[in-house]
Design a protein around this nucleic acid. Structure first.
Length: 458
RNA sequence: GGCCCGUUCGUCUAGCCUGGCCUAGGACGCCGCCCUCUCACGGCGGAAACAGGGGUUCGAAUCCCCUACGGGCUACCA
């Protein structure tokens, strides 16, 4: 059995968008299928402007968070100029490539005259003003892309231009550089976005000129936004960094991303990463674009949170809070707080939102106050609840519940009429964790104090 | 314009290759009911799709053709 080498090539713009993350994930899943396979990370950074070291570091950081490790790389295009120079020379001396002075305008003109046939240049000596290197494309035959997902697509050579593979200063262009890297790095599988399908014949032509065997290609459908337009930076594409900030779990993101454009069977929705590695296959990848739907991600994330061990979840929440200087990250009651809201949240960010009251002063929402405290009998019930709570010992959920239920029974009030004023008094909001849990979390002294404060205001 | 790719519920998809088991299945979302201290969670039920038109066939979501629509590429960007 031979080893496979998968190539993942993000643009290091400091921004790993959802589509890129999915491509990374698919490559990673494939490369992890067998121990001898490898994931090669090649960075598409001919564009020096955007690919600063900092931007590269951000991409790598996002991949690490997602749990996508690589075996070789990151290879930066800017650091491989020797290799491209050598291959370029080889093509030039064999006549497979030549210097030509035509610019975009001339190419367009020539194509119009020839009725749409591909542009063919006239070789000039190196150093001629404005000359760049073009690859000689055959006039006859087809260049056929054999795609694992889409099958065969044939492109007529006659219609393809002799395209530029290097600038006047011999720096390589994308279609050349990438093909050189594929052979040079021994890449066997290229799994990338569909936007590269039309570039593939050009890369195939370079490979052929170099006398190299092409890798296996798989072009994934693009990802679209909720408006049905392709996702792009200026088009509200979420990045994995943003997903991390909002409080998504990497395992949930992996699961969700895997399902964007791929399905295993009619009913399986949840996959452990182990399952994914085992079950994922390119043959089952969809051919049409998928829309990134955060609602479903959110639901799935909630599922992962509920399934997670509370201690582990607490660790994640603490880490998330600490990274954002949110108070309570190192509070010993955090685990108790997490347990109280585990069923209610769908992201890590919602945890401090629901239990933050326990880790800092009450911030009373005026609307909540008016709505609840303005009700008939609110003050009286709050007072009775206070009295009942003062005698609870130990001050734990079970005892608190008993005591408060007695208040409900004795007064004949609706449970909500007793609990809501209490909730507003101690949390400042109408929405929070369960009232018994919230009270216990606060502990008696603090709870009573907050109730007294509320009573004073009433 | 040329070339290439695509089109199943609002969304992600199963089914398509190897026509009949599809009165098209599941999930998110939505609506209703139940549970309930708020919000959630959970349970139950519901509305909701084969882009259109021609063929082939006893039979087509599945095979063929056309049209429409969407997208990509067509840079001395990647």
């Amino acid at each position: 059995m031979s080893a496979h080498r998968y190539r993942f090539a993000p643009s290091p713009t400091g921004f790993l968008h959802i589509g890129g993350a999915r491509t990374a994930l698919y490559n990673w899943l494939l490369a992890r299928k067998s121990p001898e396979d490898a994931l090669v990370l090649r960075l598409e950074d001919t564009d020096r402007e955007r690919s600063t070291d900092e931007a590269v570091a951000q991409i790598l950081d996002a991949m690490e968070w997602l749990g996508l490790d690589y075996d070789e790389g990151p290879f930066r295009q800017t650091e491989r100029s020797d290799i491209y120079a050598e291959r370029l020379e080889k093509l030039l001396s064999s006549g497979a490539a030549y210097w030509d002075t035509a610019g975009a305008g001339e190419v367009k003109l020539a194509k119009e005259r020839s009725g749409g046939a591909g542009y063919r240049g006239t070789p000039v000596p190196e150093g001629t003003a404005g000359a760049a290197v073009r690859l000689r494309v055959p006039d006859e035959g087809h260049t056929t892309v054999n795609d694992v997902i889409r099958g065969e697509s044939a492109f007529e050579n006659r219609l393809l231009d002799d395209f530029v593979i290097a600038r006047a200063d011999r720096t390589p262009l994308y279609n050349f550089a990438v093909a050189v890297d594929d052979t040079d790095m021994g890449v066997t599988h290229v799994v990338r976005g569909e936007d590269h399908l039309s570039n593939t014949p050009r890369q195939l032509l370079v490979l052929k000129a170099l006398g190299a065997d092409p890798p296996l290609y798989a072009h994934l459908p693009l990802l679209h936004g909720t408006d049905g337009k392709p996702l792009s930076k200026r088009h509200g594409a979420a990045s994995v960094q943003e997903l991390r900030d909002i409080g998504y779990l990497p395992e949930a993101v992996r699961n969700y991303l895997a399902l964007l454009g791929w399905g295993y069977d009619a009913e399986t929705t949840f996959f452990t990463t182990h399952d994914l590695i085992e079950k994922f296959s390119l043959e089952r990848v969809s051919r049409s674009p998928a829309v990134f739907d955060e609602q479903k991600l959110s639901w799935m994330n909630g599922h992962y949170i509920r399934e997670m061990d509370t201690a582990e979840l607490t660790r994640r929440v603490a880490e998330w809070m600490a990274a954002r200087d949110i108070s309570g990250a190192d509070d010993p009651r955090l685990e108790q707080a997490v347990a109280a809201v585990k069923d209610k949240v769908s992201t890590l960010a919602e945890v401090p939102r629901l239990v933050g009251f326990a880790f800092g002063p009450v911030e009373t929402d005026p609307k909540a106050w008016d709505k609840v405290m303005g009700k008939e009998g609110a003050r009286d019930l709050l007072e009775r609840a206070r009295t009942a709570l003062a005698g609870v010992d130990p001050f734990d959920e079970a005892q608190i519940e008993q005591a408060l239920q007695r208040v409900v029974e004795d007064t004949g009030a609706k449970p909500g009429a007793v609990y809501q004023p209490l909730r507003v008094a101690i949390t400042g909001k109408t929405v929070s964790a369960g009232i018994f849990e919230s009270l216990a979390l606060l502990e008696r002294e603090e709870a009573l104090q907050r109730i007294d404060q509320a009573l004073d205001r009433l």
